[in-house]
Design a protein around this nucleic acid. Sequence first.
DNA 1: AAAGATTGAAGGTTCAATCTTA
DNA 2: TAAGATTGAACCTTCAATCTTT
Lengths: 143, 143
Amino acid sequence: MKLNDDEMHLWHAWKRASDVVRSRIAQDLADAVGLSDPDFSVLSRVSDAGGVLRQNELAASMDWHRSRLSHQLTRMEERGLVQRRTVPGGVQVLITASGRASLDAALPVHAAAVRKHLTNLVPHRRLRALAAELERIAQPNGT
Amino acid sequence: MKLNDDEMHLWHAWKRASDVVRSRIAQDLADAVGLSDPDFSVLSRVSDAGGVLRQNELAASMDWHRSRLSHQLTRMEERGLVQRRTVPGGVQVLITASGRASLDAALPVHAAAVRKHLTNLVPHRRLRALAAELERIAQPNGT
DNA sequence: AAAGATTGAAGGTTCAATCTTA
DNA sequence: TAAGATTGAACCTTCAATCTTT
């Protein structure tokens, strides 16, 4: 019913590390290229899919709810980063030239930020083990 | 300039685990007692401080910007969870009876959620080591 | 001036309700 | 009907500008 010292310690460390790493990487990205974390995620996925992706598949691949993606795409479309096109059975999301330019600028910044704020702070020989440990934590459908 | 496989793997696992754990715990808390994560954090801190805390110290102890806390307290005050009182040199935040009742209801739910979605998914003998690893990651002022 | 606090705007997330189309 | 998508409201976070008090 109450957490013991070790559990509490891990919880606090977890919370702090999650927040700190996310905000540091987001800050570097925003400062350098004016993209938010969600902006970058969307552009990356669409680009990886070849520049076009059905909205429904995009949402599923990112584990996002429909409405979340809908709001996000509305904002990104207003900024000219992506374009929506209605097709039979749904909506296609296309990356624009401007969106691709932003992504290209963001990629090295993002990689550098992940290195600086996460992977470089973990000993090389621990990289795989920590990743595996995190996957075990994220795995269960604990609901 | 580009992440290698191990770095990429860790990054993806990290992002997923961070999101999943945060949202699962937040969901349990919201479903059971109607408190958000920030609500719970504020109530916990104020309660730990004896039920009263200067707003400035509260912000500092949570690593929050002034405006973030100000907005949060405005919402919480409207819901009757806390009360603000101007004192020489600043503002005092007081937990209300209703706020304390919500916190009391939330504490066991929160502990159970942290166990279920985080600490129980880590082998007992790894608890301290993982916490230490996370502290090392959160440590540097990487800015 | 400096520190504490507030405000409004813009972006982000979630939920429930709605609309549209296969 | 069911799946895909949108919308509006409420809450959260950040930033820049402002206000207040010491």
